[in-house]
Design a protein around this nucleic acid. Sequence first.
DNA 1: TGCTAACATCAAATATTTTTGATATTATAA
DNA 2: TTATAATATCAAAAATATTTGATGTTAGCA
Lengths: 101, 101
Amino acid sequence: MINTVKISKVLGDPIRYKILLMIVNHAEQGVAGYSNPAGGICNCQLMDTFDMIQSRVSYHMKELVEADLVREVPEGKWKYYFPNTEVIKAYIRQLESDFKL
Amino acid sequence: MINTVKISKVLGDPIRYKILLMIVNHAEQGVAGYSNPAGGICNCQLMDTFDMIQSRVSYHMKELVEADLVREVPEGKWKYYFPNTEVIKAYIRQLESDFKL
DNA sequence: TGCTAACATCAAATATTTTTGATATTATAA
DNA sequence: TTATAATATCAAAAATATTTGATGTTAGCA
């Protein structure tokens, strides 16, 4: 089952929110300058885009993955990230149900 | 405009999430042992229910009010809290839009 | 094999959030 | 007006989260 409070907390960090937005958008349309398999985002792109050092990216991606908002796909030396649409949907549905909307 | 990250952060605390749930449920059906005007929840009920000291309740209610998730209605010496349904809805809609759902 | 690039992990430093107890404020009632 | 009850605020302590730099691991390539 999804952990609504934990997901909220993970989304409650501006960097993680932006990263998830980027992952979601990229999964649709790709990002200029990178050509990733099946629309995934890799750590290097996140380092570039948000000007973060590697261990910081790693920390935030771990949070997103542990909250199950993002799926991680290893491909050789790289890890690609994809939105976990089902969990994001389930989170929204849970909010609607909890708050009677 | 709503601040999606801030709302997420406020919901990302288990106590605040439970408090908001209680406020939402109470606004519908009332809570046994208390008869509040128009289904509002007061601080004293939150202290009782969650076994929290007064300043702690006050702190968390301030967070909820500042995130605009809850409206505060003073009535004499008391403050009653009501869910801000429009903002909760707007938050959910924003998530749907941001994450393409 | 040895080298390098990508990513993970760790411990320490820093920053932020939460909790608490004390005190202040405000409204009402005696 | 004085006393009291409800809530707010404050500063210090405690807890938690984030950032950083160093080091570890792993996969692929020369």
